[in-house]
Design a protein around this nucleic acid. Sequence first.
DNA 1: TCAAGTCCGACTGAATCAGTCGCATATCTA
DNA 2: TAGATATGCGACTGATTCAGTCGGACTTGA
Lengths: 168, 168
Amino acid sequence: MLKLTKKADYGLIAMKHLAEHGEQCAISAKDLAEAYGIPQEALAKILQRLVRGGLLVSQQGTKGGYVLARNPRLISVLEVIRVIDGPLLLTACSEGDADCDHATLCTVREPLRKVSLSIQQVLSKLTIWDLREPKLSEAEKQAPSFSPALVKLGDTVVMPPQGDLPRS
Amino acid sequence: MLKLTKKADYGLIAMKHLAEHGEQCAISAKDLAEAYGIPQEALAKILQRLVRGGLLVSQQGTKGGYVLARNPRLISVLEVIRVIDGPLLLTACSEGDADCDHATLCTVREPLRKVSLSIQQVLSKLTIWDLREPKLSEAEKQAPSFSPALVKLGDTVVMPPQGDLPRS
DNA sequence: TCAAGTCCGACTGAATCAGTCGCATATCTA
DNA sequence: TAGATATGCGACTGATTCAGTCGGACTTGA
């Protein structure tokens, strides 16, 4: 459980590839699909969602393809996942109580919601750029875009949020 | 996506209830189900898994029911989820490469695995006891069983900023 | 020994996921 | 201008997983 869907997986692979190679020219869905052994049509649908989500820009026509809409250092993994798979919630029942009939009875939702927030924050700190080269993460430590941080559960989170968030 | 199944949800609710009330006598699946409006048989199955997983002890017979196998302070949320829903993996393809045909091509797996580990650390730090009373978590801060967790992402430590999330 | 009460394993609809197909639209090149 | 190439979009199908139900096996207490 708690696993990402293949769609999100494919989406991240594509985004990472575009971050690495798509600097100049657009890359077509076909090329991406062939490069990673992903079904073309499936990937195309995912890329379309990313376009609608504002993370990619598409270019139609013969020399068309996809390009990142922003600097990869400003696109978080969380955004990609959220665009493809929808909002990620840890608890089965969403924020609204209306749909959950035992809202008043269910007493674990609140603590779990906090855990969910922690996970989201971890994912929001990781950018597409960070996926690029794992070995570079050491060097990235100094970079302002990826600063050290502390995770605390319960209702308190210590340490000032010095790090700038990737996009808000 | 990335949401817990209802089963895990029910399981956590039950564990929490047992941590609060099941000190002396065993509590039957029926009582638990009625208390939270959960289908009896569905809950029973979940409780059975928790027994097999070594987190609960079952007592058959007229006055039977379930009791926690260990101190609730020593049972992590991660354990409960893992017993009910199986090992939680962020990536679609598991650790073994055999089943994933584009193992060599998929380049995002390694960074995602680290994220997965971070999430697991967060969940393993949270115990059933911590779910008990959210208001007490402030006091629990001093308790040795619940020390501030540090989430490490790869070689760098990542921190969720407090307060609100980056909306996208 | 009987009966009440409980745990336990197999089974059946329902929902979601992964991938496919076909057609419309836009752009570039000859 | 016509053809080739590429994205954009909706509907569809098979497979997997989830949620919940049913009947049987076991233990306990009178």
